[in-house]
Design a protein around this nucleic acid. Structure first.
Length: 226
DNA sequence: CACCAGGCAAGTA
DNA sequence: TACTTGCATGGT
């Protein structure tokens, strides 16, 4: 159960961030398939390194399900080298493609036509697809109203005393979904704002000056993730 | 030089 | 169940 006080805080944080930072227009990609590849490539990896890998895939005209499905895993690994963990990620992309082609004949439209909860459960069984990656894909590639929780989300909420430092993924997700309208556009913007804030304002262990969230309720020291 | 970045799975006790 | 470790590049 989420307290009304916590629900209020969650809504207030959104208002503050939106006023200060404005609409971010996520996910930064040209197609749903690009979102999916980006979601896998960005696992524990800086976005700038992911952008380089995406650029290479585009130059080689590989950013389509059939093209990627056709090339050898080793070739894919070399193409995405700059994103780090490239052998692992090539394997994960291949795992997803195997799923996409076996279950939906390679069609993202067919995949996203499936009931969201059912699809989420199936995707979580794919090797390399954990909750954050799956939810990012559902929200940003599929437009489904699913809230995405990541390390920045954890840190910011924890710092504001809204969750314990070892709260589980689903628990944090529930806090947002209990507090907000079930609106994909809102979830899209909110997660983007949290990432932006985490990157640019909340890198320090203590309160960060000039943070849009400064002065919002009690804040506490919190260790960096890990 | 050390530390970090829009995680996840597999191994260990 | 609860930690720990491997995966790897590139920027600060």
């Amino acid at each position: 159960m989420t307290s009304n006080r916590h629900k209020e805080a969650v809504r207030k944080i959104y208002e503050r961030l939106y006023q200060a930072i404005g609409p971010l227009r996520w996910w930064p990609a040209d197609s749903p398939f690009e979102v999916i590849i980006g979601a896998i490539l960005t696992q524990n990896t800086s976005w700038t390194n992911v952008e380089k890998a995406i650029r290479v895939l585009k130059e080689k005209n590989l950013l389509h399900p059939r093209r990627l499905y056709a090339i050898p895993e080793e070739a894919l690994a070399q193409a995405i080298r700059s994103s780090g963990f490239f052998n692992l990620k090539a394997k994960r992309i291949k795992s997803f493609l195997g799923f996409l082609f076996q279950q939906y004949q390679g069609s993202l439209d067919r995949m996203f036509s499936e009931d969201t909860e059912t699809l989420r459960g199936k995707m979580l069984t794919i090797n390399g697809m954990g909750p954050e990656t799956v939810d990012s894909i559902l929200l940003y590639a599929g437009g489904k109203p699913v809230f995405v929780v990541d390390a920045y989300t954890r840190r910011i909420l924890s710092r504001h005393g809204l969750i314990s430092e070892k709260a589980g993924y689903e628990e944090i997700q529930q806090l947002f979904m209990d507090s907000l309208e079930k609106d994909a556009g809102l979830f899209n913007e909110y997660h983007a704002l949290l990432v932006h804030t985490g990157k640019h304002h909340c890198k320090k262990r203590y309160n960060c000056p000039r943070c849009p969230l400064e002065g919002l309720g009690r804040r506490r020291r919190v260790a960096m993730a890990r």
